[in-house]
């Protein structure tokens, strides 16, 4: 009996003790602050990126005029006599690759998404999903190697005038690279269209194709467009495929069989050539990086806006 009373007291004391423990209270107060600090790292990273790009680009514009950079059609930074820094050829190179990539990825991606969400059985879907994940996890350097040693030789037998470095082969392979994300995002959008709508259309006598193209596709359009815009953004920022298979010749024309250079490939060329710190070429890397950053940021904002603004709620 006495023992149990003693025990009761001791438990009460324990509770009192733990309530008065300072350590615990301090932890409760300190942890949220520490966690907030961790969360702020991502904000600091963004600020770091923006300020780095702005400062170094500013340094570049003290040496080269903005007008020449933005509107010049010649990009010969390594020319020893009169280097010229017109960014348009690099932008055009990026656009050529992106356009080809989208031309490959959108029709195939949407077809696969429609097949998976409207036609395929659960079993097929279960097999395809992990395969798409694997495809999404292949490093871009592997795709680059694939473009250079497999796709280009095959294309060269079809198009004899195709150079070893060209826009076509990396464009196609970038398209394959962005395929998984376009497929899975558009399929998600199509899956979220309620079945009642499909059944309504089927009951009116529509075939599956008509349901897919005239009912599901329009209803899921915002998600699909957002997935395409995100795909464009990734294609613009893609680096290794275009530096391995695209070449290093910035040209201002619409030829896709000859060597090109994209914005990302230029940055790679400069940094692997070890351009001296503080030279105009060194700073030009940041100016090009800033241009690239603005393009991708715009695309990401557009994608976010589309998926928020035009989402159909069911």
């Amino acid at each position: 009996m006495a023992q149990s009373i003693e025990k009761e007291q001791s438990i009460q004391q324990l509770i009192e003790k733990s309530r008065n423990k300072k350590g615990k209270k301090i932890i409760e107060k300190i942890m949220p602050i520490l966690l907030l600090l961790a969360a702020l790292i991502s904000v600091v990273t963004t600020l770091g990126i923006v300020f780095t790009l702005i400062f170094e680009t500013f340094e570049f514009f003290r040496r080269v005029s903005i007008v020449e950079f933005l509107f010049g059609t010649e990009w010969y930074p390594f020319s020893s006599g009169s280097p010229s820094f017109g960014v348009l050829p690099l932008i055009l190179g990026t656009f050529k690759v992106t356009l080809i990539a989208i031309g490959v990825a959108v029709p195939i991606g949407l077809s696969v998404a429609i097949y998976l969400s409207e036609y395929a059985s659960d079993k097929t879907r279960k097999i395809m999903k992990p395969i798409l994940e694997v495809l999404a996890g292949v490093p871009t350097i592997v795709y680059g190697f694939f473009a250079l040693t497999f796709v280009t030789p095959i294309l060269q037998t079809l198009i004899p005038s195709l150079k070893l470095f060209n826009a076509l082969s990396p464009g196609i392979v970038v398209g394959i690279m962005i395929l998984p994300s376009i497929i899975s995002l558009s399929e998600d959008a199509m899956n979220s269209v309620p079945n009642a709508i499909r059944e309504g259309a089927l009951a009116l006598g529509a075939t599956k194709l008509e349901v897919s193209l005239k009912v599901v596709l329009p209803a899921a359009l915002s998600g699909i467009v957002a997935s395409i815009v995100l795909g464009i953004s990734r294609a613009i920022g893609e680096t290794m495929i275009v530096s391995l298979a695209g070449g290093a010749t910035p040209t201002f024309d619409f030829n896709i069989t000859g060597s090109i250079q994209t914005m990302t490939a230029y940055i790679v060329q400069v940094s692997s050539g070890d351009a001296g710190y503080g030279t105009t070429i060194y700073y030009s890397m940041y100016a090009v990086g800033f241009t690239l950053f603005i393009f991708t940021l715009l695309m990401n904002l557009v994608a976010q806006y589309i998926s928020k603004r035009f989402r159909e709620e069911y």
Binding site: A39, L40, S42, V43, T45, T46, G48, I49, T52, L53, E56, L230, S233, R234, I236, G237, E238, T239, T264, I267, V268, S271, M285, Y286, G289, L292, F293, T296, L297, M299, N300, L301, Q304
Partner: peptide
């Protein structure tokens, strides 16, 4: 909300731009 938007935007920044950040900082 700002932190959340920032994280989703950061996810869309091309990896080569992170390289420029790493080189400078």
């Amino acid at each position: 909300d700002f932190i959340r938007t920032n994280i989703s935007n950061l996810a869309g920044v091309p990896s080569i731009v992170f390289g420029l950040l790493g080189l400078t900082i």
